[in-house]
Write a protein that binds this DNA or RNA. Structure first.
Lengths: 339, 339
DNA sequence: CTCATCTGAAAAATCGATTGGGCATGACAT
DNA sequence: ATGTCATGCCCAATCGATTTTTCAGATGAG
């Protein structure tokens, strides 16, 4: 079963390659009798013919390939779901997805991008592994591009990010719903959209519930377990201890668990905790399981691919689209009513 | 800066496309004067010429593309480093890597593989996200393939896996080195190579240190936090409690931490723990940090790509190669001498 | 009966590269 | 003066498709 080309089909069906092409592509405006049509189709099937996309791409000057460029593929566990979402959306639409990771070396990045353009990649997904603002490298040039989990100052580039504000609101509401009224927020110190967005959502939820925002209930720290531990320690040692904590992410929530343990507080009886990110390894690993808000990585990947393909095929409302996708709550066992 | 083809370069340099091709590819056996060479090269540089790989691939009947096919890209955090290793090795060798994930649907898998062959993918990396035995799908046909983190019953296919036995030995030795002589093993129940290999390594280390293997020091459970908790609970409640535990993986080690906490045992003062996998999220997240054995995912990815390219280019000793890569110890704070 | 029109399909150009075979040109030998 | 040969480069075929153009034969109008 070596390679069977369009010529073989033509010979087998006793027609020209032209006709085969016309039949197989349902060429519009071409007149071909039904009997010929049938003969060609049967031959193609019989021979197991599959058109060479290399040849087709050369002729059509495109590749049906997308490249997902990202700064760091490895260091975060998020990557997987985002890539999966992109990959499945691409495959569903009949496109292929290349993965390229460039690290932080912008020299290397530019070189890779040029290499991809040389291979006629039709579009780029420019992804970051956490929601932040980026500058699109010049090298992408005129090739259609969509930002994934990132925003650009250049608003002409479509982008998709998580709805951080709504996510923060969701987390806080879950605590309010269980009857908490003194709710602490262990936030990240970094100046990134997630920090501000989740805080804003926290405030919105409080306000909507008629609770007053208190600055001293917000403590910040590095966004890892250690930072969460320290921040939570400080928060839980205040004179009027909160009965619940919303943590910037699951790693910090893990730190809050440690702090609670130090202080002899049981979760969720003495302290309710909500995290953010839904990192299964942590959220499922700690005891009790951590109620948290999930980032819609899969959905963002899929959205980005769909938007990119639409753009490439020119069926896009002009003007860039910017999506902020919903972050759903994942309920486990770390939230209860206040004692 | 539209598309500049070889013809443009030829025109600009005042030579034929043949000559341009010969110069740019350093065609062996072709005689071209230095002055012409220079002229062509300067023209190419000046015009920013980059050969179209689509055209080249059509002519040469290859694509310089590799595809990494895997069952599940998303569900394990390992994927990242493995993919990164593959990706960087490919890029270093001037190849492109496609990612394809097929889920468990072998129908869909076959379809994807056919699509890839149609695009002239030159080789496949068939990866699983944990070390196990697989059957290579028929659809790959004659295309060169290398197994990643998997073994096949068909020994003709090269493969690379972690050296589980040596890893188990390393973990156990670390405990022995600190003076432990009653070392428990919290093992996985699944019938996979890791289970048997790590146990074998555990036994080897004991034997080498002159310690006798005791069956009751080995307990098994599901390979997650809960399973680790239950197994460790059982192990630590025996009359003669071990002073150290080697856990099948970091998730089970996390369960062992929970069990120790229940029993009022401090780590590492009262109990030393060694894990396996080096899942940063866990190993760095628990307190104290977990000493563990790392799986060489990055290295396996790179090895597989190198082996695959070698095979494709025909510079490979005949007969398949099978590599078992070293699993290095990552020291944190969960091991101390017995009290 | 002749010429125009329509049909169905084939021929040929094209995409951008690689490559085996040739063809001038000048140097050298006879 | 003529034949031989190495040199330096170009022609044209090729890869496998798509697409524009062409064309032979059937049909119909005048």
């Amino acid at each position: 079963m070596a390679k069977v080309s369009i010529k073989d089909v033509a010979a087998h069906a006793g027609v020209s390659v032209t006709t085969v092409s016309h039949v197989l592509n349902d060429a519009p405006g071409k007149r071909i009798t039904d009997s010929t049509r049938d003969r060609v189709r049967r031959s193609a099937a019989e021979l197991g013919y599959a058109p060479s996309s290399v040849a087709r791409n050369l002729r059509l000057q495109r590749s049906q390939m997308l490249a997902l460029i990202s700064d760091e593929i490895a260091t975060t566990p998020y990557a997987g779901r985002m890539i999966l979402g992109a990959q499945e959306a691409a495959s569903k639409a009949g496109w292929l997805l290349m993965l390229v990771n460039t690290g932080s070396d912008s020299e290397f990045e530019a070189a890779e991008i040029r290499a991809l353009r040389q291979r006629q990649v039709d579009g780029f997904l420019y992804a970051t592994m956490y929601h932040r603002e980026v500058a699109l490298p010049d090298a992408v040039g005129e090739v259609p591009t969509v930002l994934l989990d990132a925003r650009s100052s250049d608003i002409a580039v479509p982008s998709v990010v998580p709805d951080e504000v709504a996510g923060g609101r969701t987390a806080t509401e879950e605590l309010i719903r269980h009857g908490h009224s003194r709710i602490g927020f262990v936030n990240n110190v970094d100046d990134i959209p997630a920090t501000h967005g989740r805080l804003q959502g926290y405030k919105q939820a409080l306000k909507a519930a008629g609770l007053t925002f208190e600055q001293r209930l917000v403590v910040t720290g590095r966004s890892d377990t250690e930072g969460g531990l320290q921040a939570a320690r400080k928060l839980l040692s205040t004179t009027v201890r909160p009965t619940a904590v919303f943590c910037f992410n699951d790693r910090m929530a893990m730190g809050a668990y440690h702090a609670a343990a130090e202080l002899g507080l049981r979760i969720p009886q003495d302290l309710s905790v909500v995290g953010f990110d839904n990192q299964e390894l942590i959220a499922d690993g700690v005891r009790p399981g951590l109620t948290t808000v999930a980032l819609p990585h899969y959905e963002m990947g899929a959205w980005a691919v769909d938007a990119l393909i639409a753009r490439i095929e020119g069926r896009e409302p002009d003007g860039a689209e910017h999506a902020a996708l919903h972050c759903p709550l994942v309920v486990r066992k770390s939230v209860d009513r206040p004692s």
